[in-house]
Structures are given as structure tokens and as C-alpha cells.
Design a protein around this nucleic acid. Sequence first.
DNA 1: CATGAGTAGGGTAATTGGGGCA
DNA 2: TTTGTCCCAATTACCCTACTCA
Lengths: 66, 66
Amino acid sequence: MEKNDRLLTPGEVALMFRVDPKTVTRWASAGRIGSIRTPGGHRRFRESEVSVLLADLTVEANQQQR
Amino acid sequence: MEKNDRLLTPGEVALMFRVDPKTVTRWASAGRIGSIRTPGGHRRFRESEVSVLLADLTVEANQQQR
DNA sequence: CATGAGTAGGGTAATTGGGGCA
DNA sequence: TTTGTCCCAATTACCCTACTCA
């Protein structure tokens, strides 16, 4: 399902989740999110995977009550 | 639909409504407000949705006067 | 090669989640 | 029924310095 394999930096992912870039780094270290390493050690994340996380985690309450 | 996807933390939303952050959490659990979860389990809220809710409060205040 | 922005580390403080109670 | 509060464990945010990226 990789129609778009664009790689995102920790800062970009942090913006999407409204968290600190450091937090994104911890997610990668903890294996909660896949990451690619540059030869220099910096992490890169697949946009497709990040999008799935955002979309999936958004579903918390579909049935609204009033 | 989502022109402004800025996300807010529970604490920020709590300040806007002048309630305890715990209350905001309960709103999310009850489905009264949509929420996004970080991979770590923390919630984030869409500013656009929060704004709508605040606007609703304003409407109620107006209706109270008629 | 030099520069500025971003990132990797590590350490510590602040928020948050969840249950239960008032 | 909704909100606030106390508890503890987990997650996240901010501090620093050194290194990588473009």
C-alpha cells in the first residue's frame, strides 16, 4: 500500500501529532513506529505509515451521544 | 473539511473551557468530542472541533437571553 | 570548506491516563 | 449524572552538548 513512500523527518512527524520531535524519536526506539536510518544516524519515517497511524488512532468515538 | 488541523493538548482544551483536564478526557471517552491518540496513548484534539463546541456554548448563552 | 537548521544522545521536570472516591 | 480531586505509572516536554544534513 505504498502509493506514496515519501520520507518524513522527526520534526515533520512531530508537527502532525502535536508532540515534541524527541517524542517521535522515542516512538521509533520503542518500536511503536517504523523508521529508516540515514548513514549518519538520523531517522526518517514513511508518510504512508504515519498517515495510517493518524487515521486509525482518530477513531475513538464514532457514535456521538447527545 | 480540514482547513485547520491544528491539534490541542488536553491541558489547552481544559483552559479554553475552564475545566479540569480530566473532564476533557471524560468528554473524549464519552464520545462528546473527537480525539486523536498518540502512539503513547495521550490524546490530542482538533482545534476546529473545539472551536465549534465553544461556539455552541455561545449560542446557548444567547438563547438563554431570549 | 563554511554555515544554519535539525537531530541524537542523556537527564530532569511537567502532563497525562486510568481507577476509584466524594 | 457531571465534575473535581487524590493516587500511581506511564508518557511527554524542556534542558544541554555534539554531530549530521542540505
